[in-house]
Write a protein that binds this DNA or RNA. Structure first.
Length: 466
RNA sequence: GGCGGCAUAGCCAAGUGGUAAGGCCGAGGACUGCAAAUCCUCUACCACCGGUUCGAAUCCGGUUGCCGCCUCCA
């Protein structure tokens, strides 16, 4: 059984072959930390965290790197506007990033390299390119000589000449060719800067990832990932730099996630429809948002709207309900009997289907549909008069484990009920026995206002949080 | 202009040659004191026009519409 990945480089699904047996070296382009992240930034974070989790579920060790770009033009601009220092802003938004992303259950990367902490490696990288004739210094800046890299354009499937017509030279740039791009940028007055052989300055936008991927993961990595928009120019340029520098394939598989629209419109500043993660998680359970993101294939565009989120919430609740239904039935369950074996076999088949779907380029939408099938079967099982503890627990484990592969948490921390609430529930049970339904309903309504939902079942009354 | 993507039920969304997964919403039924949860039942001329094929949502050609990248961007 193998995992197939759609590789942007070849434009087809390929069977994943790790460089090193049992290991995945994965680099994901992280945020430029000059602001709070928006929901569009959250998609690659969620998607590739899920990819990582699945590889681990399949027994791989994943060396996952996600960088923080903590110095660049946008940060300098933000620093000027906020009248703060670049490092302070970077620090603040790295912290904010980790908090936002943590709410979605995204795990910390193995490496979180920052540009400013890898300046020596970046400068060394550029120097190698200069030495090899792939880059040149010009008035304190250093540019990559794009034409010196033969296969430039192989990722975005464009020829240099086609790209060149769209390229342009900014005022003050001293390029040999419009398609050349910046590796090192000399600082203007008072800008944050580092010493280098060419000038006091800072790295260009693309070089950091090449240098840091090399340092932390090696010359050739298994998977390089990011948002679709990074394909060109960012990843194209990374390939050029890295392969020109190392004379080796930079990454074997390139993965790109699709965009997010807001209420059917592109998220943009001019439309004023930017959705910040920090805001949205105050209105919606982050787990619902994560689940929602995974109901669509990662390469497809996804629309983000209030109604869709509500739908996702209901969907996820169905799975959670099943888990609770199972939990509630545990105590009245007995030992395994003959027919139960069939259910256990069925569960194994579901797990296999789940894996088959994930193996097919991480088809989380279909994997989730398997989760619903398990949910359905669990509820059907609970209809039978006799249930076994073993089967119930197997159902629960399947639901929790597979949802867990998607990073979705099904079990919620159970808080103990207050004595007072406990007493009310007991009072209602007594009232119902006495057929005092008015009082019973009163108690139920009362508890509902406190977000405690009561459900009467053949096995007795149970409750859950709303 | 170059490169690419998408068009499937009221909504969301899989499916890439054998006569349409799943979810949400809605309707009816069962269960319940009533609810809730759950179960059962019901809802698709797969954008359009040609072609290939025994057979196409799926392949090929064309048409229409929407979108992305080519400039900072997840």
């Amino acid at each position: 059984m193998s995992i197939k990945i759609y590789n942007t480089l070849t434009r087809q699904k390929e069977t994943f072959q790790p460089i090193e047996e049992g290991k995945v070296k994965m680099y994901v382009c992280g945020p430029t930390v000059y602001n709070y992240i928006h929901i569009g930034n959250a998609r690659p974070a969620i998607v590739f965290d899920t990819v990582r989790r699945y590889f681990e579920y399949q027994g791989y060790e994943v060396e996952y790197a996600l960088n923080f770009t903590d110095v660049d033009d946008k940060l300098i601009k933000a620093a000027n506007e906020m009248n703060e220092e670049v490092p302070d802003i970077a620090e603040r938004f790295i912290k904010a990033y980790k908090e936002d992303v943590g709410a979605f259950g995204i795990r910390e990367a193995v490496h979180h390299p920052r540009v400013t902490e890898n300046m020596d490696e970046i400068i060394e990288f550029i120097q190698t390119l200069v030495d090899k004739g792939h880059a040149y210094e010009s008035g304190g800046d250093v540019y990559f000589r794009t034409r010196s890299f033969d296969s430039y354009g192989k990722l975005s499937h464009q020829s240099i000449d086609e790209l060149r017509s769209g390229a342009r030279i900014e005022v003050g740039e001293k390029k040999e060719d419009p398609i050349d791009f910046t590796l090192w940028k000399s600082a203007k007055d008072n800008e944050i800067s580092w010493e280098s052989p060419w000038s006091k300055g800072r790295p260009g936008w693309h070089i950091e990832c090449s240098a840091m991927a090399k340092k932390y993961l090696g010359d050739t990595i298994d998977i390089h990932a990011g948002g679709q928009d990074l394909t060109f120019p960012h990843h194209e340029n990374e390939i050029a730099q890295s392969e020109a520098c190392n004379d080796k394939t930079f990454a074997n598989y390139w993965m790109h996630n699709g965009y997010i629209n807001i209420e059917n419109e592109k998220m943009s500043k001019s439309l004023g429809n930017f959705v910040l993660v920090n805001d949205i998680i105050k209105q919606h359970d982050p787990q619902v948002i994560r689940f929602f993101m995974l109901t669509v294939h990662y390469r497809h565009p996804i629309n983000f709207s209030e109604a869709l989120l509500q739908g996702a919430k209901s969907s996820l609740e169905r799975i959670k309900n099943a888990h609770q239904n199972l939990e509630h039935r545990k105590q009245s369950s007995t030992n395994l009997n003959g027919k139960d074996e069939e259910w256990l076999t069925k569960l194994e088949e579901f797990k296999q289907r789940f894996m088959d779907e994930m193996n097919d380029d991480f088809n989380t939408a279909n994997a989730i549909s398997v989760l619903f099938d398990i949910t359905k079967e669990a509820n059907v099982y609970l209809q039978s008069s006799h249930t076994s503890q073993e089967v119930i627990e197997a159902f629960q484990k399947a639901i929790v484990d597979l949802a867990g592969v998607l990073g979705v948490q099904i079990e919620e921390a159970d808080e103990l009920l207050d004595d007072e609430i406990d007493a009310l529930i007991q009072e209602r049970i007594d009232a119902r026995k006495n057929r005092d339904f008015q009082r019973a309903d009163e108690i139920r309504d009362n508890l509902k206002e406190r977000n405690i939902i009561l459900e009467d079942t053949p096995q007795g009354t149970r409750w859950k949080r709303g």
